[in-house]
Structures are given as C-alpha cells and as structure tokens.
Write a protein that binds this DNA or RNA. Structure first.
Lengths: 249, 249
DNA sequence: ACCTGAACACCGTTCAAGT
DNA sequence: ACCTGAACACCGTTCAAGT
C-alpha cells in the first residue's frame, strides 16, 4: 500500500521514464543524476528557496534521508545543479563555429555569451547559486576554456586574456547581477509621480533620470534590472575595450 | 543575579557607552541602531553565516525574542546593515571633491568607486548581502545619485548615464563577484603541477594560462579572485569605454 | 515600554535499523 | 544495495506573560 502511493508520487515527477518501463519493474532506483535533475526542475518550478532536501525527496517519491545515499549533502546537490547548467550551456554553445577568423573573435564570443544568457534566463536561480559555490563546476571550467581559446586565436596574450576574463566576470556566463531596480520600489505607476517629487530633494539626478528613461521589456529581465538591452550594452562596451587593448599590445 | 550576568555580557559588546554611563543606570536599552551595529560587528568578526538572531541577541546580552521588539524580522536586520555600509561609503566618499572639471569626470568617479571598494574590503560579507536584498537601501540610493551627478556634470545625457550605471553594475559599489578562482581548487603548489598536466587534455588553454599568469597579492582579494589589479583593469576598461561613448554622442 | 519562556514549524544531518 | 524512522541540533518566529 505505501508502495503504491510512493509509485504514484514518483510518477508525477518523472512521467516519461515511468511510462516506458515494464509494469513489473516498480521504480527505477534513485541515482545521483535523477536527484540532480529533479532539483533543477524543482528550482525552475517553485524557486530556489523551495529546494530543500525534504521537498526534493518528496518530489522523487522518497524520504529525505534516502537522498543521502546518493549525495553527500546539500552542498553537493547545489554543486551538481550548477554543473548541469554548465552542461546545458556547453550544449547550446556547441553549435557555434569554433574557429572564426582571428579578426572576428569578438562577435564569436558575443554569440557564445548571449547563448549562455539564454540558458540563464531559463534558470533564473542559477546566477545566485553559481555565485554561492566555493569550488567551480567542471562543465563551467570547460566553458571558460572555450572562451579562452577564442581569445587566444583572436590574438590575445595569456596575460591579456586573463585580464579579459576578469573584466567580463559574470558577464562571461551571461548575467550581471544588478543592484538597483528603480521599477521595484513597490509603487505602481499612479502614485510614483508624487513619490518622485518627494524624492527629488534628496536624489535630484536619479529622479530626473527616472523621468527620462525607463525599462521597456520586462520579459527579458533577469532578476534585478538586468534586461537584454542593458546587458548587451555593457557586454559590447567591454568587448570593444578588450579589442582595443589587444590592438594596442 | 541574572541581572548582573546580563549586564556583564552586554558590557563586552558595548564597552564605550557603558563606561560613560552612571553606575546606577544599568544598561542603555536596546535600540534598532544598536542591534544593527552589533550585527555588522558580528558579521565582520565571525562571518555572515554566524549572523543568526540567537547569536546576535547573545552578543547584546539579551534573548533572541527581544530583538523582535526593535526589528520586524531578520530581513529588516539585513536591510539595515546594508544601509549602514552605504552610510560608511558615503562618509568615506564625502572627502572627494564634488565638482571636478567636466573633462575629469572619469578620475573623480574612479576615486569614488575605489573608495567604496575599501569599505567593501572591510566588510567582505557585504557584497553577498547587498545582492540578496530586494529593496535598495536609502544610503546606497544617495551614493548612486552622487555617481549620476558626476556623469551629468561630465557631459552625459541621462540616457547614456543610465546605460553607464548598468554597465558598471556592482563595480559602482566597488566589487565584482568573480566566478572562477583557479587558486582555490584545493591544491597546494607542490602537487598542482601534476594536476595541471592531467587537466591539460581537457582544458588546454586554461592550463597554459595558469602556467603563465598568477595572482600575486592575496591581501587585496575580495572573496573569489577579485583582486585589486583585476578590479582596476575592469573598471578602467569600462570607464574608458564610457568616455568614448560620451564623446561619440 | 521593554524583555522573556515556552512553543511551533521548519531546516540539514546522523545513525541504527529495516528489506 | 538501497531506503527509512526516530532523533538531534539548529533555524526564524509567534504569543502570552512577566516587570
């Protein structure tokens, strides 16, 4: 009886593999890979704060303690899901030509980074988890190495390429954690004009700026106000600067 | 008796005000400000993971539940300590001349940002907490407004200044969360040569780069491998790019 | 007005025990 | 080999009660 219940719960989380199984084989046993994939799905669906060991277990139709047979602890789960995201990036980026003309390193890198960004937009929790990791994921090392290869074939010294990777920072992975989202001050548009007038005395430049510019496409926003347009502006600024530094060297 | 014990514990956390108090007055009552300052001290001393309501309370010689009389919840504590850091930045930045020659907006901003970075280096937990906040701190809004003023007086349109703030991202506050710290793979130097040889097949460029370049000053490192040299390289790259964009406009 | 004790609903994790 | 029940040491937080 408990058995059947467990089966039903697991089926929800993993319909496809279950359907193709023979009916006598009750459940494919848990594996580290299934645990990690379920963790990504859970974070995608309910947010990273819902990713607790207990929630993750129940998603897999299992008790929390069973997870510890497959992963050492929650840190290993977090390391693991970052690595899955890294794989997703590497697959997505795989289609992009590897050896562009040396003069064109910049647009090749641009395409890679914007592709990585597409992956991040599918997993909005990923930037935060990536930044919380102590050791770096193997798949993301591979991604970095591919960027480094582009720099090298584009004529960068290792020294400059090293600076370049640092200058890109998290932008290399397609995101830039923004710190200030004027749209997210908890006001709707109607009362914001009044609000702005009151703020003008304290932060005159900010208020004037907000009255002139505004964000347009909320769909492309990743967390704060890292929207597509701003991301590309910053990215191109850096890529241009790097190309000038390369030409100078 | 319990009374005296409480007094002694609290004195440790706040010697100065206690010393100047009359001996009949036992304790200055808790206040939101004292709670927040104790929270900053605790995070500075023992790390942000030690900042629990129970730890914070005992630091103040009080029970955890007492804190809730002064702050609504832990989120308010975190918002509050970020605001304290913002104040610290504004004080440190206050000495810098406000109205440089228009042509010199860049070096004036550079000084401000590197000053903000000094504050961050004193509070290594601050970047993480800042990025975790939903609403922005008033003191940091003030800081942003001062940067915006520099852009404006330097000849930037609001539109370009807006892009510029986004391009700077967290660099405006003096940090850039780095994602990859090759030095932190858990190896000491002796076995790393062997290690590198094994990695070479998978990530050839990375290995070759690591053999050529290395980080030198661990003192200037903020968390990952955001060291002073790399931070300034990235910052100058962006500031240069922005100045070119301004001249073009 | 300010602080507390007891309790609640959560965490991650250990360990001995089940099949 | 794989999973579990009970328990532990922590969280943040509520609420009625103390002074």
């Amino acid at each position: 009886m408990t058995y059947l219940v467990r089966y039903d719960e697991a089926e929800k989380a993993d319909e496809m593999t279950t359907k193709t199984k023979t009916t006598t084989e009750p459940r494919s046993p848990l594996s580290k890979d299934r645990v990690l994939r379920a963790a990504v799905d859970l974070a995608d669906r309910d947010g990273i704060e819902s990713l607790t060991m207990r929630n993750l277990a129940s998603e897999l139709g299992v008790e929390a303690m069973s997870l510890y047979y497959h992963v050492a602890n929650k840190e290993e789960v977090l390391d693991g899901i970052v690595d899955l995201i890294g794989n997703e990036i590497n697959v997505a980026v795989g289609d992009i030509e590897e050896s562009p003309a040396a003069s064109d390193w910049s647009s090749a890198m641009r395409r890679r980074i914007l592709t990585a960004r597409q992956v991040m937009l599918r997993h909005p929790w990923a930037p935060g988890v990536i930044e919380s990791r102590i050791s770096i994921s193997p798949s993301i090392i591979l991604y970095y190495d591919s960027l480094l290869g582009l720099f090298r074939r584009g004529g960068f010294s290792y020294d400059l390429a090293h600076h370049a990777m640092h200058a890109l920072g998290s932008r290399a992975l397609g995101f830039s954690q923004e710190l200030f989202d004027p749209a997210d001050d908890g006001n709707n548009e109607s009362d914001s004009d009044e609000m702005l007038a009151q703020m003008a005395a304290q932060v005159p430049y900010l208020v004037e700026m907000l009255m002139e510019v505004s964000h347009d496409d909320p769909e492309s926003t990743l967390g704060w106000c890292d929207d597509q347009t701003e991301f590309e502006f910053g990215l191109d600024l850096i890529l241009d600067g790097l190309d000038r530094a390369r030409a100078r060297a």
